[in-house]
Write a protein that binds this DNA or RNA. Sequence first.
DNA 1: AGTTAAAGGTGGTCTGACCACTATAGAACG
DNA 2: CGTTCTATAGTGGTCAGACCACCTTTAACT
Lengths: 211, 211
Amino acid sequence: MPTSPKRKVYHGVLQEIREFIEKNNLLPGDKLPSERDLADTLQAGRSSVREALRAMELLGLIVTKQGEGTFLSNYRPYQTVELLSSFILQENSTKNDLMLTKKVLEKEAAKLAFSRINEEEVKDLKLILANSEWKQSEKHVAFFTYVFERTENLLLVKIWQLMEDFSRAMINIYYKDSFYRELIQLYITRSYLSIEALFEHYTTSETDGRK
Amino acid sequence: MPTSPKRKVYHGVLQEIREFIEKNNLLPGDKLPSERDLADTLQAGRSSVREALRAMELLGLIVTKQGEGTFLSNYRPYQTVELLSSFILQENSTKNDLMLTKKVLEKEAAKLAFSRINEEEVKDLKLILANSEWKQSEKHVAFFTYVFERTENLLLVKIWQLMEDFSRAMINIYYKDSFYRELIQLYITRSYLSIEALFEHYTTSETDGRK
DNA sequence: AGTTAAAGGTGGTCTGACCACTATAGAACG
DNA sequence: CGTTCTATAGTGGTCAGACCACCTTTAACT
């Protein structure tokens, strides 16, 4: 029996839209034809067109505004990463994996922020720690949220936030109080190389396989 | 005027499916409820359910077989990558975020694998490098896939794979040939502390993503 | 018991019908 | 003339129902 490919309609629609964008040289912000137009032009049902568009929207390739239309968007993988990560996180993470991965990200963020953080911002970090209104776990989140923002790496921020959200559902993870103070101290004394050691010192536990 | 969030139905369906998977502890290969069942259970139209499923399919999270059903898949985002690569506008900021995040993960994996890797496995790494059938970029993937498996941290593996797939859609990233050799050497000589320096040395300034 | 045909379940697709929202043309007003 | 308001048309959002193609299961037949 000849196994014809038999691609689904929405795949074809996807391809057509792609070609349309290329042919008309559409740029982010430009408007796509309406769903009804596309369905008519491509000789497909509107529902099939929508399946393709919805998938594109979920990936962040387009944005839709009710009553206005569908617009090409400036693609960034962050949205996709966020979506996929949410599945990855729920499906296979053990507590240990999660804690260790989170630690790794926090450590690297601390190092990346090193060269980008100034005295004024170090003061902000101190203020976070001094805020007695917050619980320890809240301080941890606020502290590292600030640090991660300094890395100027939106992708890193997104991944960490997801893991933070997820881990909070299972357990509150934070370091000893002195840890944060010492990290600030390293920022002040410009001791980049000690950051790695600081993390190792405060987190060597059963989760870390290294000997 | 109260601006209600007004999330679209297919977003809700997506979340419900995610929760269903978690609650029932579904594993790759397991069957999801039929589209009609889902529509009925979630009180949504079948077309809305399909929009969510189609998006998941495009992401490679599920596979659908006509006449049989919808099944949870072992996440392999190749299809996504292929699709996205034709839409992606290569933004430098995005690329930099990706490359840096990937590097961080690879470095930490290399360190985590340190204590878990034995002589036999070091030999395997050498074999990967020696395989002349592969392109450099393929060697990179094979090499680090092996390293990541040694970390015994499934979450780390998944996140790295995600980064790897995305970066591959934009640009092939790998290190100089000598980098891999030197890393192996560090495994042999048990020089844990030099791993960090090795990565810093080979990845300072611009990243080399040559073909 | 083995084979075959019918029935039911599932995804794939289309159509038509509403709804909610937005932009716009044209009427009404000052 | 210009402004404001309003009816209308266009757009995405959603649903229900109807087929089709395909697969599995069941039942009937030999």
